[in-house]
Simulated assay, not measured.
Amino acid sequence: MTPESQEITTKERLLEAGLGMLLKHGYSDLGIQALLSETGIPKGSFYHHFSSKQDFALQVVDRYMQEVHQGLDMSLGNHALPPLERVRLFFELSREKYRREGYLGCLLGGLGQELSGVSETFRHKIEGCFNLIAERITDCLEEAHQRGELAADQEPRQLADLLLDCWEGAALRSRLRRDPGPLGAMLDFYFAVAAR
């Protein structure tokens, strides 16, 4: 193994562990020492890859977004399905991911709630991530609109933003209850209303 691949492996291990810890504990309760104990990685290696706890958390968000984009590619890119079914599939895949993680919800929503009032850096970062997701969903909803699957007066970008807003609220309720019920109810309601 080359030193470069070792560095990538170490960084990836830190990001992967950090993703789970941030999801479970949030930013304020994320201790660098706890992360190092979890991974068995020395402190110097952490600071070789990340300049600070904030830098680390921002890179964890980037790592999380890689997973989000994979889910979007898998669902929105499945042209065997009609566009509204592809959009719903993305959220159903997300619900399944939440189930595997114990219904801890969305990292973006959790960090957004925790940090948007105290950190402009995180507020801009997370809003930017939500905008990227909304843009991709909008493209699919545009296709549904063109096919007449949405009412003529419905604006795809507004529908995409509303869908994300509703999902994040349902994800919070799901986390509070440790129960998928709010996620499924929200999807059923949204797609019943959105579809023509």
Rank of each mutant, 00 (worst) to 15 (best):
R123F: 03
N131W: 05
Y98N: 11
R95W: 12
R99Y: 10
P83R: 07
P82T: 01
L111Q: 02
L104W: 07
R88Q: 15
Y98F: 15
L132C: 09
G102D: 04
G102M: 02
L93F: 05
L107Q: 03
K97F: 07
V118F: 13
V118E: 14
I133L: 11
P82H: 02
F91C: 01
L107W: 04
V87I: 08
R88W: 11
L107C: 08
V118Q: 14
L89R: 14
L93N: 14
S94T: 13
Y98L: 08
G117H: 14
H79W: 05
Q113M: 09
E101N: 12
G112N: 02
G112H: 07
R99E: 15
R88K: 15
A134E: 15
I133S: 04
E92D: 08
I126G: 00
F90D: 06
P83W: 10
F122Y: 10
L111P: 01
G105V: 05
E101C: 02
I126K: 03
A80W: 00
R99M: 13
E127C: 00
E92F: 02
L89E: 12
R100H: 12
G105F: 06
S94Y: 01
I126Y: 01
L108A: 14
E96P: 05
R100W: 08
F130W: 13
I133G: 06
L104M: 07
E127L: 08
R99S: 14
N131V: 08
L107S: 07
P82N: 08
R86M: 02
S119H: 07
K125F: 00
L89Q: 15
R136I: 06
E127P: 00
G128V: 07
L107G: 02
R100Y: 10
G112Y: 02
S94G: 09
E85Q: 12
P83L: 08
Y103Q: 08
F90A: 13
R100A: 14
L104D: 04
G117W: 09
L84V: 06
L89K: 13
V87Q: 10
R100E: 15
C106I: 05
L93Y: 04
G109D: 10
P83C: 07
N78F: 04
E135S: 14
C106H: 04
E92A: 00
I126D: 01
T121P: 02
G109L: 09
S94V: 04
R100T: 13
E114C: 01
L89N: 11
V87G: 13
C129Y: 00
P83D: 05
A134K: 10
G105T: 06
E114Q: 05
R123L: 07
R88S: 11
S116D: 11
I126N: 04
L132M: 10
N78A: 11
A80N: 03
G102C: 10
H124V: 03
L84S: 03
L107A: 08
L93G: 00
L111M: 06
V87N: 10
H79F: 10
K97E: 15
V87Y: 11
I133Y: 01
L132K: 15
G109T: 07
F130K: 09
K97A: 15
Y98H: 15
S116N: 12
